[in-house]
Amino acid sequence: MLAASAGVALARGMGQIDLRVPGSAPSARDGYGTDPDIIRTHAPGDFWPLTLTRAERRAVSALCDVIIPADDRSPSASALHVPDFIDEWISAPYAGHGADRTLVNAGLAWLDAESRRRYGSAFARATDAQRLELCEAMAPEAPPKSELELPSKFFRRVRNLTMVGFFTTPAGMKDLGYVGNVPLARFEGPPADLIARLGLADEVAW
């Protein structure tokens, strides 16, 4: 719940603070407002129209699946409808989301143009090997060359949104090993063998 840095939402329920948008005026007219119905389950598109074109949607799906492909534990990002979430995110009527929209639109344009230049087809129609090659170009370990600054920023953003979209689904939570959100009669604390393995038995004082 603090700012958007690593480990932040880990500090859950600590009475902590999100400083991302201090003081900015709510946009009750365009967004979901300051008193939405939080009991009802919502789907992307319920509050504001989605804005990706069909072609952009295809590219996003293909890119999401390079970022999180299916494996033996869980399905791919697109199979869990992560592109719907990304569309919802970049279409949201809040300032920060507007900046992401600009970035993602520009990134997608670059991606298709680069794919056409290299392979003669849009990213969504490129082969698996070609898609991987393009991602490798956008995701260098070292700081990117200046002409790749935009694509690499775009890639990191879509990568992050894909992870958020994926790991918040029931299948994604299971994949990570999140086993909470169920009522318990007692809170048992960590398993004894884990405590022993980390040499923490002496710390269990209550």
């Binding site: 958007a4 840095s5 690593a6 480990g7 932040v8 939402a9 880990l10 500090a11 859950r12 329920g13 600590m14 902590q16 390079v66 970022i67 999180i68 492909p69 991987l132 991602c135 995701a139 260098p140 370990e141 690499s152 890639f155 990191r156 953003r157 990568r159 992050n160 992870m163 958020v164 790991f167 918040t168 994604g172 939570m173 990570l176 090993g177 999140y178 909470g180 959100n181």
Partner: peptide
């Protein structure tokens, strides 16, 4: 703040760790 809370926005794998891994 420690432990495995319900995954949410900003819980893990955030850009600030610098990783650009995929797949």
């Amino acid at each position: 703040g420690t432990g495995r809370g319900m995954p949410g926005y900003g819980s893990y794998g955030d850009d600030s760790r610098g990783s650009t891994s995929y797949g």
